[in-house]
Design a protein around this nucleic acid. Structure first.
Lengths: 126, 126
DNA sequence: TATTAATTGCAACTTTGTTGCGTTATATAA
DNA sequence: TTATATAACGCAACAAAGTTGCAATTAATA
């Protein structure tokens, strides 16, 4: 596997994620980067961060693609946590502790689950 | 609300859905339509069918948008059923009977849930 | 400090979806 | 059956999101 280098742009992207509690879209990141690097470079940085398991990709119910930091508190990193998508402020937050239980026919070999809840987040419902 | 008319193109789209057990993308539908109508018209037909609650829109884990027939067996139509996305053949099927149970803090007002399982479908796992 | 390969910017392109507008066709009433 | 109002259509143009190739730059390490 290729070695990934630390560059100015990558550091800037990581800082943006460090300052955010919610998932961010490429466009939002690009705006915050404020000319630090090209649009294409940001896409490539995001790809690398995903490969390195530093962030993960989330597709919102409306198809919007966002990225969020991975939390590695537990030894094994679980990507299968739930996400909450606020229909008012459109913020996506990871619900690390919400895990659904379900029943499905044995003929389906389930490898991954994606569980996204939508409605109003704590901020928007009060 | 506007009255929707039955047109040649709409009928053709409905027939395509009738012949399919899985969800279809705009591109797949367009190919099957075989010059029956313009790309834009297909988008508009799909919009109308969604409004009329005849089909529903599904966003796959990778962001691919697909459409599937709504089943109205039960009096009340439930959009919140689970979907299965096969990582091999990329088909999406509705799992009408799979319903997850979960626990989430009261501060979140949940209105809708999206539950997508991925892995191998019965066809691809045998 | 020199070297190697990862990273970048830029231009060009693709895919997916949307909008405006003049024309066509459907449903309904005469 | 024919007239008519308007839903639906095709086409052109546009926009957003993402990808690719390539030459130039820069980070890691020898």
């Amino acid at each position: 596997m290729k070695i990934t280098r630390n560059t100015v742009a990558k550091t800037a992207v990581l800082e943006i994620f460090g300052n955010s509690t919610t998932a961010l879209s490429h466009t939002e990141i690009q705006k915050q980067l404020n000319e630090v690097c090209d649009r294409v470079t940001t896409y490539r940085i995001l790809d690398r961060l995903i490969q390195d398991d530093i962030i993960h990709k989330i597709v919102d119910l409306d198809g919007t693609v966002k990225y969020a930091k991975c939390r590695h508190e537990h030894r094994v990193h679980i990507h299968n946590h739930a996400h909450f998508s606020c229909e008012n402020c459109h913020e996506i937050t990871c619900l690390e502790n919400v895990k659904p239980s379900y029943l499905i026919p044995h003929s389906y070999k389930v490898k991954d689950i994606n569980f996204t809840l939508s409605g109003l987040c704590p901020k928007c419902s009060s």
